[in-house]
Design a protein around this nucleic acid. Structure first.
Lengths: 122, 122
DNA sequence: GTATGAACACACTGTTCATAA
DNA sequence: TTATGAACAGTGTGTTCATAC
């Protein structure tokens, strides 16, 4: 019954990490890919991490396939440029369940890194 | 002058993580692959992470290529089974420099995970 | 130029196979 | 069996290309 496992045992995958952020963004307001990308790039630049646009889209498509999000193509009035793909949460329960899963992996990863710092630098 | 980059911007790679642990193990006493593997497996099992033997060997070989470790093949008296490859630190300065580099990546990763927990669960 | 997406290519790592004692 | 290693295979992700405004 397990779908694709999100964790290989070591640290969380970038994909899952981004899916989590995307879910949180979309829960707040209706957003589309580029917008989220710019947000995240800005947020993580100070940490030396800059997600690529293709990863964002792959994450978005994953969430579609998972049945967690739905997509509508819309001609935004404000934005001068054509169609954007606007996402919203389709299945709140699944979204919540997924986030819970990712949280566990984040917690685990934090412990792993902490342990490594302790074991090797003290 | 930068060799293969150890970090792709996101979290630290398993390889670098293991190389760090290997260096620390070898600094303490003369050890060989399987021994380190068993150690690490035991240490990380509670965290749901179990490194594979091939990754350990790859990490060891990397450290050889980096010029940080040297290897001698030895017939251990105690161990009933033939040759083992025993490693020791060849270049202490490079070892130190490498560990410093990895530490930075661990710190960064911890911040990233912390931020994700904060941003998405609070 | 902005926005979305797919294709391609490579890097990372897990699984399997090989060899030796 | 223990130990080391290489080969193979799958997956994840960065880079590039394609399309539409």
């Amino acid at each position: 019954m397990t779908k694709k496992r999100e964790s290989t045992g070591f640290l969380i995958k970038q994909r899952a990490f981004l899916k989590l952020y995307i879910l949180t963004s979309i829960e707040k307001e209706r957003w589309y890919g580029m917008q989220i990308l710019d947000e995240l790039k800005a947020a993580f630049r100070p940490f030396g991490y800059e997600p690529q646009h293709s990863e964002i889209y792959r994450a978005l498509h994953d969430l579609l396939e998972d049945g967690i999000l739905t997509r509508k193509k819309i001609i935004e009035e404000g934005s001068r440029y054509k169609e954007v793909a606007v996402y919203s949460v389709k299945n709140k329960d699944e979204a919540k369940a997924y986030k819970k899963l990712v949280k566990a992996d984040l917690d685990r990863g934090e412990q792993l890194l902490r342990k490594a710092l302790k074991d090797n630098f003290s």
